[in-house]
């Protein structure tokens, strides 16, 4: 459990970090909280020659809320997401989801940027960001560009990020309506057996807009377009929520692991999605 040798950098600006990335290409990686990266380095499952610590770059930190626009720096920790009262007022689903990630020690160091940029399908934040229709801001040699969270994930650990790019911030509009993030896990600190985020905007019993995203139920987060289509414009009742749940489960494509076989995961996905839908509806 000892990583192979690497050079360590701690730049104090995005430009410096990008320039190191440019120099070393795929031999370089940025490190945020390190909770995903360090274990794979220690197991020598990845060989990183140049490790760039982003913690000294002040502009990557912080939560900015201006009206309904929310922008979160990539190096903002999960504990900061949980404890920021303004963020809770604007987007309470973030606290609900963040509290279900790992444990307090991990959340003290784990960052939103690391969680979304690593492309690990087991991470909760990618699904959550798809739920919120967030936009990722990436900075690289060719300047800054934006990618929608719903278009960022290509396969497990493969994302739209180029080798020389750093994810610098995440922005989204404050969601309207009821919300829920429901997760089943084996124990504290575990990844989801199945997890689902739901936002429901309901007017006189009729769904005016909706968003549903799933975590750890495929090799990327799953945004449930079809299910959202089924919901929108309809009067919400148990029957509709069951149909919507079924549609979401059909979108999922989990793999068997020690948490259980595919059949079990799909069944639990249905339970978790249905619970999330109902809780979001109650809160709408």
């Amino acid at each position: 459990m000892i990583p192979s040798a690497f050079k360590f950098y701690k730049p104090n600006s995005i430009e410096k970090a990008v320039s190191i990335m440019k120099d070393f290409g795929d031999e370089a990686r940025v490190i945020a909280g390190g909770h995903s990266l360090i274990p794979v380095m220690k197991q020598r499952l990845t060989d990183i020659k140049h490790l760039i610590d982003l913690s000294a770059i002040k502009e990557l930190k912080g939560i900015n809320i201006s009206g309904k626009s929310i922008s979160i720096g990539a190096m903002t920790t999960q504990v900061e997401l949980i404890t920021n009262e303004n963020l809770f007022k604007s987007a309470p689903v973030i606290r609900e989801a963040s509290l279900q990630i790992a444990d307090p020690q991990v959340r003290n160091l784990g960052t939103i940027g690391g969680n979304v940029a690593n492309g690990d399908p087991a991470n909760d934040m990618p699904g959550l960001m798809q739920l919120l229709d967030a936009t990722y801001k990436l900075s690289g040699t060719n300047g800054v560009r934006e990618v929608k969270a719903r278009e960022f994930y290509e396969a497990a650990y493969f994302t739209a990020r180029e080798d020389d790019e750093i994810l610098i911030s995440i922005s989204f509009d404050a969601p309207i309506g009821g919300y829920a993030y429901e997760k089943q896990k084996r124990k504290i600190g575990d990844y989801a057996t199945a997890a689902a985020g739901v936002i429901l905007n309901v007017d006189k019993g009729v769904c005016s807009s909706a968003s549903i995203a799933l975590t750890n139920l495929s090799d990327t987060p799953v945004y449930c377009y079809e299910a959202v289509g089924l919901l929108t414009g309809k009067k919400i009742d148990d029957n509709l929520l069951s149909q919507v749940t079924k549609s979401c489960v059909e979108q999922s494509d989990p793999v068997a692991d020690q948490r259980g076989p595919v059949e079990f995961k799909k069944y639990v996905a249905g339970v978790v999605i249905n619970k999330a839908l109902k809780r979001a509806f109650e809160r709408s």
Partner: peptide, 16 residues
């Protein structure tokens, strides 16, 4: 008796 094995008991007994 982890989650999936308990779930499997219920399934095999026709409780789902």
């Amino acid at each position: 008796h982890d989650h999936w094995r308990v779930w499997k008991i219920a399934k095999d007994l026709g409780l789902h």
